[in-house]
Design a protein around this nucleic acid. Structure first.
Lengths: 115, 115
DNA sequence: GAAATACTCAAGCATGCACTTGACTATTGC
DNA sequence: GCAATAGTCAAGTGCATGCTTGAGTATTTC
């Protein structure tokens, strides 16, 4: 059962932590084990495992255990859904600005000498 | 002093709350007062003010007080910086996948009959 | 098969977050 | 000027988060 519904709360929450972003950054270059993810971070392995769990719960990361090592990799779908949410609001706002600009330009044309 | 450094921690943290996302959604359609932002939400005005403060601290929203009303509006820069961070990781990952695909295709060509 | 590796689990703790209530201040409208 | 409106401030509460430590469990490796 993959977390296919793009739970934005959890995705943004997951991305809000700098350590977790470092992990996502690492994973965007390719799959990695938990201890590889832990290397650049100054915290216990147990803490890293907890972060991985948060990332998995958000759907940003998937992992599978082979032997004694758990290999993590990025799920671009979750990344894309967050990106899309932001992009939609931003373009909405920019389109509004454009319309406002048009309106102001028109108004200036209609009453060019006023005041 | 605008929060020009795009403090991703705070931006993603701000977006992680559903109520705050509703506010951003509203603001993407144009500026609004604090009580307008409060309308669709079932919480006290004081709570809404606190959310606005979080949004401002993240740089996602700016506001100014005229008379007794505070008018909030979106700052697309912060939105863009978050969007960009995600987009960069995602495309990195997708490029990696492409290279992997190329490699697999090449390998298949070089040893087409094996096994 | 013993030691090292790679997690995993549970408990505990300090701090942060999302609220609430109650009191207070500054504008606006009549 | 008095009431309604719009927001502000401070304190308090309960739950979530980000860690830690210590102990335990599979796998590898030698």
């Amino acid at each position: 059962m993959l977390n296919q519904a793009p739970d934005l709360d959890r995705v943004f929450q997951a991305l809000a932590d700098p350590g977790r972003r470092v992990m996502v950054e690492r994973l965007s270059r390719g799959p990695a084990s938990v201890s590889e993810l832990a290397k650049p971070l100054t915290m216990s392995l147990a803490a890293v495992v907890q972060h991985v769990q948060v990332l998995e719960a958000s759907g940003l990361v998937r992992s599978q255990k082979v032997g004694r090592t758990r290999t993590c990799s990025i799920n671009p779908t979750a990344l894309r859904s967050a990106e899309q949410w932001i992009s939609e609001r931003r373009t909405l706002w920019e389109r509004r600005l454009d319309r406002l600009g048009d309106y102001l330009a028109e108004t200036a044309n209609e009453t060019p000498e006023e005041t």
